[in-house]
């Protein structure tokens, strides 16, 4: 379970995250949506321990974020974080060697599903293939929590559908997924709970079906109307 209390992160006098309170139960598939600069990436980085809060408290399964939790959480960064001089399979093997929860079957399944060339240098892969490679690195683990930061960003529509199917393939019961995106239309069917963020604040938080019913609109329409008004 993820518990966040009065979480604040300030960058250069700007509140990237502004006094957020949040509880996410085990096994939830949560969509974290909001425009650029709304604090989604900062919140995910804070949860993983890639940055420290200015104030407030985070507890994940009773522990504070940091090195101890990295064997339980899998993080997908938005930026291209792969070593370009390595070959695809070499990078996967190297990364896998550090994790006791690495699932070789899941790895093979995802490589096949994404049609990832195994013996090509990462530098020679397209942007979409590199995103898929990062997904293989992130999703091939049997981690308890998955933090996916904008996995659809900069990807063409056909590949976006492929990536979403890949994420669904990797999803197992009792695993918690937090999926941040500003491309709501493609991903909204995935989310059982959706958190809308704007200027570091949570402005809407609820079960996706209940929100659709309450607003009488799709998530994408709520996103466009509520966050950009």
């Amino acid at each position: 379970m993820i518990e966040v209390k009065k979480l604040v992160k300030i960058y250069d006098d700007v509140y990237a995250v502004n006094s957020i309170d949040l509880t996410i139960e085990e096994g939830a598939f949560v969509g974290l949506v909001g425009p650029n600069g709304s604090g989604k990436t900062t919140l995910l980085k804070l949860l993983f321990g890639f940055c420290r809060p200015t104030s407030g408290d985070i507890k994940i399964n009773g522990k504070s974020p940091g090195v101890e939790l990295r064997s339980e959480i899998s993080f997908y960064p938005e930026c291209d974080s792969t070593y370009h001089w390595m070959k695809t399979q070499d990078l996967i093997n190297w990364y896998a060697s550090f994790f006791s929860d690495w699932n070789k079957d899941k790895e093979k399944e995802l490589i096949g599903f994404f049609d990832l060339p195994r013996h090509r240098c990462v530098a020679h892969l397209s942007k979409g293939l590199r995103a898929k490679l990062k997904l293989v690195l992130t999703l091939s683990r049997d981690a308890k929590i998955f933090l996916l930061d904008e996995p659809l960003s900069g990807i063409d529509p056909a590949s976006r559908a492929n990536i979403i199917s890949g994420i669904l393939k990797a999803y197992r019961a009792k695993q918690t997924f937090i999926f941040s995106t500003h491309i709501v239309s493609d991903a909204e069917t995935l989310f059982e709970r959706t958190i809308f963020m704007k200027e570091g604040n949570i402005i809407i938080d609820g079960k996706s079906d209940a929100l659709r019913e309450e607003y009488g609109k799709s998530m994408d329409q709520i996103f466009k109307e509520e966050l950009y008004e």
Binding site: F50, V67, R70, F75, P77, C79, S81, T82, Y95, F98
Partner: peptide, 9 residues
């Protein structure tokens, strides 16, 4: 690549 390196346990 620091994101990959520092995500190692």
């Amino acid at each position: 690549t620091n994101f990959l390196l520092l995500s190692l346990p």
